[in-house]
């Protein structure tokens, strides 16, 4: 497991550290913000937390010994988001992750083709999912992370990434169906 040193950050970083950080980590600021935005759902909160996470990453930077800088950063962003949620919106974290998997998605491709290409509808549907479903979807579909990267960012065993994604997609299908406009839902 690619953990980072949680215990202590060095706060004496010099110009050389700064240059390395600019080169390796700062280019992933968009990824950091995007993940925070989807975990916290509100832009203003996401800006604050992304900033805090980026500065935390900087303090821990001497503990980063090469490798996947994006995954390393996103791991810190995720932890910072969850800490923030625990403190500010604990109710959101209480939703159950391990629910039973139904064998088939409940939306037909046709219904999705009509309803799914709508940014607002997708956003709303994604936002109704518990954070742990939302994050695997965002990492996979928006960030293009591999299972290995998802495992290291979210601290779930690599063997369960596939089933986590399966559950998350199923939940999203269901959320989309539920938010389908009246005419469509009558048919389903």
């Amino acid at each position: 497991m690619s953990g980072y040193d949680q215990g202590k950050g060095s706060d004496v970083l010099d110009a050389q550290d700064r240059a390395r950080f600019e080169q390796l980590v700062l280019p992933h600021l968009d990824a950091a913000f995007n993940l925070a935005r989807w975990l916290l759902r509100r832009r203003a909160d996401s800006e604050d937390v992304a900033q805090e996470a980026m500065l935390r990453a900087y303090r821990f930077f001497r503990g980063f010994h090469g490798g996947d800088a994006r995954a390393w950063l996103l791991q810190i962003v995720r932890n910072t988001c969850y800490t923030w949620l625990e403190k500010n919106r604990p109710v959101e974290l209480m939703s159950e992750f391990d629910e039973e998997l139904h064998p088939q998605p409940s939306t037909s491709p046709e219904a999705l083709a009509i309803a799914g290409d709508n940014r607002e509808r997708l956003t709303r549907a994604l936002e109704t999912l518990p954070p742990r479903f939302r994050e695997v979807l965002v990492l996979r579909e928006l960030e293009g992370c591999s299972y290995k990267e998802i495992a290291s960012i979210t601290a779930i065993p690599i063997g369960t990434v596939m089933s986590a994604l399966a559950r998350a997609r199923q939940r999203l299908h269901r959320a989309l169906t539920q938010s389908t406009p009246q005419e469509a839902s009558r048919e389903l």
Binding site: L29, D30, A32, F33, N34, R37, W38, R43, A50, P105, T107, P109, L112, A113, G116, D117, N118, R119, L122, T123, L126, L137, E141, L142, R169, L172, H173, L176
Partner: peptide
């Protein structure tokens, strides 16, 4: 179909 919707709807938010 779901994947292509997610990826084509401009959901990614830049900093």
């Amino acid at each position: 179909s779901l994947r292509s919707s997610l990826q084509r709807s401009g959901l990614y938010e830049n900093a």
